[in-house]
Computed example of a mutant assay.
Amino acid sequence: MENAHCPEQTRLLIIDTDPGVDDAMAILMAANSPEVQLLGITTVYGNVPTALATQNALRLLEMSGLRERVTVAQGAARSLKAGTDIERIADFVHGADGFGDIGLPPPQGQHLMDCSAAEFLVRSVNHHPGRVTILALAPLTNIAQALMLDPQLADKWDELVVLGGAFFTGGNVNPAAEANIFGDPDAADLVLGSTSRLRILGLDVTQKCRLSGEQLEAMQDKGKYGTFISRISQFYLNFHREWYGMDAIMLHDPTAMAAVLQPELFEWRAGAVRVACEGVTKGQTVMDASVKGFHGHHGWADRPRVRVALGVQHEAVVRLIHDRLTA
């Protein structure tokens, strides 16, 4: 297994992702953060189809100089209960190539792990019990499949940090649902019911963490990644200008990476979470934050209490993101 001789105190990280402009920010933050050692990247559909997500992960690792040390394992191309419809791909947000259509060359190396993303997750967590943090930045299909392979897996990872959900705010794919949870609500409901060793942050906090168009322009020529981030973000910025009427981008994925690095910048509340898996509210996350009990059994009873981010020190988070991307 790769990286088998990591120092015992190092926090090991696997990122499950669909890069994606803001996914790229999160991955490059991880590459530039001494608090973590990136073990691997597992890929899935969402912002782009899975095969392209894999190519983009390879591009980012080559850019960061980590290609020879970090494993890439390709994951699911469809949701757990995929029907005849194709998966929803957010190319209108990130560009057809996921990186703002700036015309990047293909990655030089194509070698991938000889197993699926789910298998890689199971192997890695079992090889480093209690030490692996998984940061899930996309639909949770790979994580759900890993739990199906090893139902005790959630007892063996350090923690799972999930980007997803809209708890006490509206969604971003429809009034009820956030994109990652909507992408595979069945997987999300399974994962969120699997363990209390899980933190989740969604639109309640990530929408408050933003970089302005002026700040993105000022990142040009700053640090190792500033110019790249500024260039790929222009398409993403135009989406925010058109659909939100703001001259700024929301930093969803890098905010989740910030929650791995400095969880004290967030306000966490514990509660059981269910996901609506069908109907008009498909993808909606509903947290049992009630202080009262309920008469009779209900769908939240006997579910583990996970920690949900409901508040954020947004200026400190944005500063952390900016510093790690321009250092």
Rank of each mutant, 00 (worst) to 15 (best):
H240R: 03
T54E: 00
D23L: 06
D114A: 13
H297G: 08
L149P: 05
G279C: 07
T206C: 10
R210C: 11
A187V: 04
K292N: 13
Q145R: 15
T54R: 00
A248Y: 02
C6H: 11
A76Y: 11
N180R: 06
I102K: 10
D91F: 06
E278P: 04
H127F: 12
I200W: 03
F228E: 10
G46L: 05
A77W: 09
A136G: 15
M257C: 06
F120S: 00
L38R: 00
A136M: 12
S290H: 10
F294Q: 13
L52F: 00
A96N: 14
E278D: 15
G130D: 15
R303S: 06
S194D: 05
L325I: 08
V273Y: 02
R319D: 15
P7I: 07
M25I: 10
V273D: 03
A289V: 12
S79P: 12
L190Q: 09
I89Y: 10
Q110L: 01
A96P: 01
P139C: 04
S33M: 00
A57L: 00
Q284S: 13
G223F: 06
A179K: 13
Q37G: 14
F266A: 09
G171Y: 12
D16R: 01
M113R: 05
A73Q: 00
I321W: 09
I86K: 14
Q262K: 02
D18K: 04
Q220G: 06
A118I: 04
A117M: 09
V318T: 15
D221W: 12
G311E: 02
L310E: 06
F120C: 01
D323V: 04
L216R: 09
R303L: 13
R210N: 06
G213M: 07
Q145G: 01
P7Q: 11
T43F: 01
A77I: 07
G311Y: 01
P7M: 09
V286P: 01
L112N: 01
Q313T: 04
V306P: 05
A176M: 13
